[in-house]
């Protein structure tokens, strides 16, 4: 089950999500989107606790956060 879904075409590589992540598992990588922005990505999704801090800080609604349902 994917915990973090990045809709990369909206990302502008601003890095606010990277700073907000308490687990420090996000980074703005080398991959560029169609607009030429380096997009944010998760380097270790297993460590993701689904707090959605990243999505809360994202100005462009790039990140959809999922969690293991009960």
């Amino acid at each position: 089950m994917k915990k973090l879904i990045f809709d990369e075409k909206f990302c502008k590589g601003c890095g606010l999500c990277v700073a907000a992540c308490p687990k420090k598992i996000l980074t703005v990588g080398k991959r560029l989107n169609a607009m030429g922005y380096a997009v944010a990505e998760c380097i270790d999704e297993s460590a993701c606790i689904g707090c959605a801090f990243c999505a809360t800080m994202c100005p462009d609604c790039v990140i959809e956060v999922h969690k293991e349902g009960r």
Binding site: F10, A52, C61, E64, H66
Partner: peptide
Amino acid sequence: DQVVFRKPKLLNDTP
């Protein structure tokens, strides 16, 4: 799986 965070409905898909 449970969606914890998604784009709200009132926003559309325009970048």
